[in-house]
Design a protein around this nucleic acid. Structure first.
Length: 632
RNA sequence: GCCGGUGUAGCUCAGUGGUAGAGCAACUGAUUCGUAAUCAGUAGGUCGCAGGUUCAAAUCCAGUCACCGGCUCCA
């Protein structure tokens, strides 16, 4: 079975494409195809040419700006300049205007093949030191592209033949950003101008719509709107406060995670948050990971270190007594909270934080168990991720890098184990040759979300280093002491980050089983409120998270509020329902479910929770209940 | 850390040197209402923080913290 079953199941296709205030109806219409640059030779030429037009416009308006490089990106293009004064947003408008003017002049773009000396002379004539550096790295033949009479750039092409092929209504300059010459922060800081360009204004409009869609799904915004979590200035950047609704959801995720691990033969550990700094010396983290760690603290004359990783603790637990080969494989998991120093400016909502909880696990096994254990991890990973409607993966296998530790035979065995497991699982993967860690090969898994973005979450890494450093052993059948194989693995990666990705995937429309508030009971009048309260009590007793809206507002307002808060099921209770002993159900996913008796509602909700279902399955409620009860 | 931008009420935002504003949310009262906003009223801010300039600073200046878009890095 291929890894990518279908993205259509991710729930997001049926997610409402609307502002928080409009009703969810049906699916997002099949949108216009917006090819990536690498998929469209036409767009590639347009975007590449557009970056030349950009550079020409900039040099026209800012003669002191020096050009560097200006490639296409998958959705547009950019150009890096070394300019004495920073570009402002206002400058972008002027630059865009100039670009429109250049395009309007219908300038030809011509490819010229020149010899190295000619190229160098031309560059020297214009005082463009970066170009000179680029030239030095080029192979013959040297080509350049002219843009009209006045401007040219070293470039391999391809380009459009004439700026008349560029649509001045189908491009946009998007932002200014700092970037480093050749991507190295030790080099000069350049100013990068990003733009996007399309064949038609309609494509540009669709591109903008998708950007807005991503904005609508932004977990930071949804987190605030639905009161799930916050990050407090006074506490510090990158530290997450889980509010009751977010905390309840996290608890549901954790409970599910724990249950799945117990079922799959794991035991759970709890380990400390700090430890003597010597532990980190032994593990090697102090040497190789220091810049990512919170500084040490002194207690009783000893230095303690806040943990950036859980591995050494699991290793110590293993080493706490002598192990037999009969015990292996040992599978230990922990929701371990770690703290890592992140540089200012890199924090991002829940996606990049300084304190987070890893769903970490370590498997200690015999060499011959590697294949089975990896396969087992792959199966568990698929099981857990698909519960959150992530069913489409991109998998990378990373092999031995040049500088690494360990014997060839062990590397081969381990790498073969990973390959064998992937093949047995039937998953296709890309090989990242030499991309493994210095201590072992690994499998990384990226999940695709509802709008096609890839996120790396799961990782499975073999480790030949820590068992060595901590001198881990087991007693083999022949009585000799041997070194166990150690596998690190995480499925969510970080609970915080996964929560953010999941929130964006569902656009805040969480499945029934996961919603903090699953059912909201809406009394039409005060007279029926006691019945609503009674039903709420029954639901709560059955483990269903229901509440009664006591605001006293009119039904229309109650519905509106409930929908804005994305409550999966709104249950209207008026006189009819009170008499019938039920509620009229309005589901975000299933629409109007009609009047259901209390017993049916409770039963369906309990069943949905057990099955971790996205919605309620109420059989026959619509027809029978409403028909009979409305008759008199 | 770097480049650019932004910090004003819970949220979205207006306010460019002279008494801090709006909408929504919240709270109180009236209304007892049938599937996306009933009406009226009340309360809420040392304008991110700490300095400076000024008779006077949300507003000008330098600093700092945080956030946003990127770069670099990364779970």
């Amino acid at each position: 079975m291929p890894a990518s079953v279908s993205a259509a199941v991710t729930g997001a296709d049926t997610a409402p494409a609307h502002e928080a205030g409009t009703i969810a109806t049906g699916s997002v219409p099949v949108a216009m195809v917006l090819p990536k640059t690498s998929e469209s030779p036409e767009l590639l030429r347009i975007r590449h040419s557009m970056s030349h037009v950009l550079a020409m416009a900039v040099q026209k308006l800012f003669p002191r700006a020096q050009v560097t490089i200006g490639p296409w990106t998958e959705s547009g293009f950019y150009y890096d300049f070394d300019a004495p004064d920073p570009f402002t947003e206002a400058d972008l408008k002027a630059i865009k205007k100039e670009m429109v003017r250049i395009i309007g002049k219908k300038l030809p773009l011509e490819r010229l093949e020149v010899n190295r000396q000619d190229a160098e002379d031309r560059i020297r004539g214009q005082n463009e030191p970066y170009k000179l550096e680029i030239l030095a790295g080029l192979q013959d033949p040297i080509t350049l592209y002219t843009l009209g009479e006045e401007w040219w750039d070293l470039c391999a092409g391809p380009h459009v033949a004439n700026t008349s092929e560029l649509n001045p209504k189908a491009f946009e300059l998007e932002s200014v950003a700092g970037a480093y010459w050749r991507g190295d922060e030790k080099n000069a800081q350049l100013q990068r101008i990003y733009g996007t360009a399309w064949q038609t204004p309609e494509q540009l409009a669709e591109y903008k719509r998708r950007k807005e869609e991503a904005l609508r799904r932004d977990h930071r915004r949804i987190g605030t709107d639905l009161d799930l979590f916050s990050i407090e200035d006074e506490a510090g950047a990158g530290l997450v406060f889980w509010h009751p609704r977010g905390a309840r959801m996290r608890l549901l995720i954790e409970d599910y995670w724990r249950a799945a691990h117990f079922e799959d033969g794991y035991e759970l550990l709890y380990t400390p948050h700090v430890a003597d700094i010597d532990l980190w010396k032994t593990s090697g983290h102090l040497d190789f990971y220091r810049e990512s760690m919170f500084g040490p603290m002194e207690v009783d004359g000893r230095e303690f270190q806040l943990k950036p990783m859980n591995c050494p603790f699991h290793v110590l637990t293993y080493a706490s007594r002598l192990r037999s080969y009969r015990e292996l494989p040992i599978r230990w998991a922990e929701l371990g909270t770690v703290y890592r120093y992140e540089r200012p400016g890199v924090m991002h909502g829940l996606m990049r934080v300084r304190g987070f909880t890893q769903d970490d696990a370590h498997v200690f096994c015999l060499p011959e168990q590697i294949g089975d254990e990896i396969l087992r991890v792959l199966n568990l990973t698929e099981r857990i991720l698909s519960t959150f409607d992530f069913r489409h993966y991109e998998i990378h296998l990373s092999t031995r890098p040049e500088s690494s530790i360990g014997e060839d035979a062990v590397w081969d065995l381990a790498t073969q184990g990973l390959i064998e497991a992937l093949d047995r699982k039937g998953w296709s993967y890309k090989i990242d040759a030499g991309g493994g860690a210095f201590y072992g090969p690994k499998i990384d898994l990226k999940i695709e979300d509802a709008i096609g973005r890839l996120w790396q979450c799961s990782t499975i890494q073999l480790d030949f280093n820590l068992p060595e450093r901590f001198d881990l052993e087991y007693v083999a059948a022949d009585g000799t002491r041997r070194r166990p194989i150690m596998i690190h693995r995480a499925i969510f990666g970080s609970l915080e980050r996964f929560f953010g990705i999941m929130t964006e995937n569902y656009a805040g429309d969480f499945p029934f089983w996961l919603a903090a508030e699953q059912i909201r009971l809406l009394p039409v009048t005060d007279d029926v409120r006691p019945w609503a309260e009674a039903l709420q009590t029954q639901l709560a007793a059955a483990g269903v998270r229901a509440s009664v809206d006591r605001s006293g507002d009119r039904l229309g307002k109650l519905i509106r509020t409930g929908e804005q808060q994305k409550i999966p099921v709104l249950a209207v209770i008026g006189e009819r329902e009170a008499e019938a002993g039920g509620a009229s159900l309005r589901s975000r996913r299933e629409g109007d479910l009609g009047l259901a008796p209390a017993s049916a509602l409770i039963q369906a909700a309990v069943a949905a929770n057990q099955a971790r279902a996205a919605g309620l399955a109420i059989k026959g409620a619509v027809g029978s209940a409403t028909a009979t009860l409305q008759a008199p």
